[in-house]
């Protein structure tokens, strides 16, 4: 099972490093990253393998959101199934 982690906000140093180490802390293995910065706006989508997740999915989502607040970014963690259902037939 995989989680889609999206990070959106004003670009600054250390976003990728910070989010990845937070993921590692909860046992989430990052398997893909795509990132763009347009006009100073940072958008990153990460795909994380959650097989080794050390806390409940909902708790992980909340922790990441809180971490996002701390660094001034909007961080969302959503189960991959929602994107599979909405965008694939």
């Amino acid at each position: 099972m995989k989680a889609v982690i999206s990070v959106i906000g004003k670009d600054h140093v250390g976003i990728l490093a910070g989010v990845s180490s937070k993921c590692a802390e909860y046992g989430v293995n990052i398997i893909d990253v795509s990132q763009t910065v347009i006009g100073g706006m940072f958008t990153m989508i990460m795909l994380g393998d959650i097989e080794g997740l050390t806390v409940k999915f909902g708790d992980f989502a909340e922790k990441m959101q809180t971490y996002g607040d701390e660094i001034g970014m909007v961080v969302r963690v959503m189960h991959e199934d929602i994107f599979n259902s909405m965008h694939r037939i």
Binding site: S6, T36, V74, I82
Partner: peptide
């Protein structure tokens, strides 16, 4: 990997 614009579209639908 999912299409980035699909993911952002879903997020926008929910948040905005």
């Amino acid at each position: 990997m999912f299409n980035q614009s699909d993911i952002l579209e879903t997020i926008k639908m929910i948040s905005e």
